[in-house]
Design a protein around this nucleic acid. Structure first.
Lengths: 209, 209
DNA sequence: TCTTTTGAACTGACTGGTCAGTGCAAAAGT
DNA sequence: ACTTTTGCACTGACCAGTCAGTTCAAAAGA
């Protein structure tokens, strides 16, 4: 027992295989969707035998669910880190929001396929992994909601804002802008995109230059 | 001869069948995704034999593509109408944007399944209907971009804003907020949601009450 | 008015193919 | 020694698309 001990690479052979499978699955499912992606394809792209997939995961949907948890774990960690960093540096809640927007962009820049897949599955109903998806969504949105709530308490934000809805809207803003960036103008720099969103976020849209 | 003449209601038997198939397909595909939805299911929900589906549409994906075109047609018409109405009423571009946000919410309120399905498929790559989707996306976003551009020209918006990206971000804001509304707090009123988004849009988030 | 014909619309059993998941003996890795 | 991976044949369910046949309302004919 105690297979994946080491805090270091954390690389048992098994761990490495699972990682390869995640990477293969994420791009294929992002492109084609869950149902249209076959286990044979995933195995082939990972350079692994089909049996290995079933040795490592109980089923195709379990592989997918663990992939979801894994990916959202990375995202929430990154968001939380961004919020805490600005707090340490004595920034206000607006700065925290801005830092989280950037963290979101960095994440999407690094894992575009995961983002694609996440958005594509999030609002579906009647699916096997529905509950996993809800949990995972709540984790991510909760970080944003937390910052908004603190901002309201400290008086930095109006207490009339609707915290859950505003959080969702902010997440949506970043998500859709970033997916469009990656899909339709991939040559643009992250700083560029971030600047445009900051401007929108801080209401510096109206009024001349 | 001359069976389907009348320009009137346009309600041939065929037309009615196609409409039933659209309605059945849109909810099923929104729930399960395109690949996971079978033609048998669509036919059954529409109360029609499987052969009828193929009598009316060349294939499953053609049915889907026509469904997309049909739905986005309704959306763009509604957005355009909202923008023009505010222009007639002597409103500024901010009012136009606000009216379009509301029009978007009304649309999503009326056709939640279509919206779900649209978001789920929009950023996929390597799919048969990819080009249809691009055309249809551009139609919708172009309306928002148009209003932003006019606002920049008239000096109402800063000329530093990035029109395509800001348009995408605005669409995303409404889309995600509305889907969350429908999925997680369906009891809230449209006016309520609209008010929250207006506040965000007009930068009335920071600052006390 | 009544009968016959026409053809668009629809039906549902059937086909050919695909795919998730299994089983297992042998090999490779640690 | 024991864990992990391989390779590959196999099964049973499921599904897109087909097609020979049915329905029926309206047009043509008598």
């Amino acid at each position: 027992m105690e297979s994946s001990s080491a805090a270091s690479g954390g690389s048992t052979r098994r761990e490495a295989t699972r990682q390869k499978l995640y990477e293969a699955a994420v791009t294929l499912i992002a492109e084609q969707g869950f149902s249209a992606t076959t286990v044979d394809e995933i195995a082939e792209r990972a350079g692994v035998a089909k049996g290995t997939v079933y040795y490592n995961f109980a089923s195709k949907s379990v592989l997918f669910e663990e992939l979801l948890r894994h990916g959202v774990g990375l995202l929430t960690a990154s968001l939380r880190e961004a919020a805490e960093r600005t707090a340490r540096d004595g920034g206000g809640k607006v700065d925290a929001l801005d830092a989280m927007v950037r963290a979101g962009l960095v994440f999407i820049d690094r894992y575009p396929s995961f983002t694609q897949l996440y958005v594509a599955e999030l609002w579906r109903t009647n699916r096997a992994w529905q509950s996993t998806l809800m949990v995972v969504r709540q984790q991510a949105v909760a970080v944003v909601e937390g910052v908004l709530r603190e901002g309201v308490e400290s008086g930095e934000f109006s207490d009339e804002i609707d915290v859950p809805l505003t959080a969702a809207a902010l997440v949506g803003m970043v998500l859709v802008a970033a997916l469009d960036w990656k899909s339709f103008q991939p040559e643009r720099s992250l700083d560029d995109v971030h600047a445009a969103l900051s401007r929108l976020l801080q209401g510096r849209v109206s009024g001349r230059h």
